[in-house]
Amino acid sequence: MSILVVEDLVKHYTVRRGWFGGAAETVRAVDGVSFVIDSGECLGIVGESGSGKTTLTRAILGLERPTAGRIVFEGEDIHALSPKALRAQRARIQMVFQDPHASLNPRMSVRDIVAEPMEVHRDVLGLSGRQMTDRVAELLELVRMERGHLTRYPHEFSGGQRQRIGIARALACNPRLVVLDEPTSALDVSVQAQVLALLIGLQDQLGLTFLFISHDLAVVRYICHRAALIYRGKLVEDGPVDQIFDAPRTDYAKTLLAAMPDPDPGKSPFWGPAAQGKIQPDSEKGAP
């Protein structure tokens, strides 16, 4: 059963060059992308820098209105919803950001950061402050952190720990879909593997659906069931990961894969035979 359907999504930006509104130029950030995510699966989106991946996530999160096309989440076109309904819908789609340093407010305690989605959707959830604190403690344990970290501030944590806090925040309202925009690319190699293993475990345990954006083909292959290649705002090919990487159908995909940098031995936790045995995910990748 599909949870998210993206139909012919287009997002163009108009950029003005020079003064006095001179030559307006159109940037086709996303240019007619369609795909479907099934409930419980992990879809990887792969593409080089500037190919429109972040723009795509912003449209799915309802942060930006698409130029054309539809985004249907659990049967509802999210950009046709009333502002109130859209707000409620947002509890169901959550996001984990690339930079764990920039995505947590330095002036807020871990408790307040993780509780924020519950605060925002208080009218629906009806949780008291006390209940939220308990839930935050629970979430911290879920992401393998200590309850005692509640009262600390982001600057007291390492990158990997901060990313766990970001994951706990994303899970606070029991979302159906979690969008992850390069969630591990800012982390050290060893930490990357731990965070990915945590994500796979959580997906299994909570029945989450992931939209996983990455540069790193090895990471996508490891965590995702299916992958879609995007190039200059267009979807080039999609299918099961093994097929995409081992037997791409289109020449375009072949060229693209060849042109993408090999997983960098220093950067990817999945490079080389030595790495293969090191990763201990909490559970095996489940079938969608």
Binding site: L63, L86, R87, R90, Q94, A102, S103, V120, H121
Partner: peptide, 9 residues
């Protein structure tokens, strides 16, 4: 972190 708050609604 501001974008994150907006995304939460």
């Amino acid at each position: 972190f501001v974008v994150a708050a907006r995304a939460q609604g």
